[in-house]
Computed example of a mutant assay.
Amino acid sequence: MPASLSPTKTAAALRTSARVSLDLLLVVLAASVCLWLLGRMWSVVWPLVVGLFLTTLAWPPARFLRRRGCPPALAASVVTVAFLLVVSGIVTLIAVPVASQSGELADGAVSGIQRIREWAAGPPLNIADEQITDGFDQAVARIQDSVDSVLTAVVSGVSTVVNGLVTAVLALFLMFFFLKDGPRFLPWLARQLPGRLATDVPVVAERSWQTLGAFVRSQAFVGLLDAVLIGIGLWVLKVPLVLPLAVLTFVSAFVPIVGALFAGLVAVLIALVSNGLTDALIVLAIIVVVQQLEGNVFQPMIQSRGLGLHAAVVLLAVTLGGSLAGIVGSLLAVPAAALIAVVWNYVREQLREPESDESPAGAAVPS
């Protein structure tokens, strides 16, 4: 007969399972409360996060100046002004060539639309001009009927732009103060915390800062790789505005999913209105191949090495972050996963059993 279960061991196992389940529920509840508080304070948290991202990019030159004897305030001011000049240069690099070739692009857009109409009028679609005109009139009528919705969307868009400008200004000021007073933050934090927290929290904060810097540098490298590969393809096809499109590709790499789609759409449209449908399709194929290589090969490999995360973890983190919080979730998913890994590794270090230097009883000690 098979042996029966031990009532004592079964009861002990159930009690252990219940206790572990209760502990997990408390952890999930605490995490939910923290996320709810972050959501309530998002208008402050988001500029803080952006400011930290900018500081990781601007800190190396600021550190160089400080090591050369430059006062912290002066070093932070110089780097902040230089950062603004670089951003202004990037905007100028995009805007000036576009403005100088706007007439050519407008003519190309008109001829491109005309070619599309001629293609639609032929087989297999055989769409007559009257049908196109009727469709256009119906679209205008629908827009006129939904003026309130259009106005609401415009107001919402203006509000989003204003909020973005406010966030950028706040993030810039925070970057200045982080560059100026950043090295004094951890000692100040250690003095404010009691007991062991005065040691643990600064260590975790320093490791988190290093991890955040690795993320931003890896993202910048991936964006540069995208810009170079796509720029070479546009240059070979003789598409105009190659340099502005390459710069736009690099900048948009910091905004996951939507940034790549926007930069790719702009490149394809310019190729369509300037070079024709064939080159536009080739540009689309180049962008799709590069984006697939970036998303499935380059980015997971580079970020997994820089952040200490497996490539599969990076992919899953981006997918989960996008499903939970959209674009912002995709942007913050990888650094959030890396910071969680930093905390987890530190906790494991603290909970690890100390290695004994004594030899087990009866073991032979080598001479």
Rank of each mutant, 00 (worst) to 15 (best):
residue 88 S to I: 02
residue 186 L to W: 03
residue 37 L to A: 10
residue 139 A to T: 13
residue 271 A to C: 08
residue 16 T to Q: 14
residue 256 P to Q: 08
residue 210 Q to T: 03
residue 200 D to K: 01
residue 338 A to G: 15
residue 190 A to L: 05
residue 142 R to I: 11
residue 164 G to V: 02
residue 159 S to D: 15
residue 112 G to E: 00
residue 30 A to Y: 09
residue 40 R to V: 07
residue 188 W to F: 10
residue 189 L to M: 14
residue 122 G to N: 01
residue 156 S to Y: 12
residue 319 T to E: 10
residue 234 L to C: 06
residue 28 V to F: 12
residue 31 A to F: 14
residue 122 G to R: 01
residue 257 I to P: 05
residue 132 I to Q: 11
residue 303 Q to L: 15
residue 148 D to S: 13
residue 4 S to F: 13
residue 148 D to K: 10
residue 238 K to P: 04
residue 331 L to M: 15
residue 193 L to H: 01
residue 61 P to G: 02
residue 147 V to L: 14
residue 306 G to C: 01
residue 277 L to F: 09
residue 93 L to E: 10
residue 59 W to F: 11
residue 251 V to N: 01
residue 101 Q to S: 04
residue 165 L to H: 07
residue 234 L to A: 07
residue 118 E to D: 14
residue 15 R to V: 03
residue 190 A to E: 07
residue 287 I to R: 05
residue 163 N to Q: 15
residue 3 A to V: 14
residue 83 F to W: 11
residue 262 F to D: 00
residue 172 L to A: 12
residue 205 A to I: 01
residue 350 Q to G: 13
residue 120 A to W: 08
residue 346 Y to D: 15
residue 47 P to M: 08
residue 164 G to T: 05
residue 42 W to L: 08
residue 207 R to F: 04
residue 353 E to Y: 12
residue 8 T to Q: 12
residue 38 L to F: 10
residue 142 R to F: 14
residue 72 P to E: 08
residue 290 V to W: 09
residue 42 W to S: 11
residue 273 V to F: 15
residue 248 L to N: 02
residue 358 E to S: 15
residue 52 L to K: 05
residue 196 R to N: 13
residue 34 C to P: 01
residue 84 L to Q: 08
residue 187 P to N: 01
residue 95 A to R: 09
residue 222 V to C: 15
residue 26 L to K: 12
residue 175 M to W: 00
residue 52 L to S: 10
residue 2 P to F: 04
residue 279 D to W: 04
residue 228 V to Q: 00
residue 162 V to A: 13
residue 357 D to I: 15
residue 313 V to K: 02
residue 305 R to M: 08
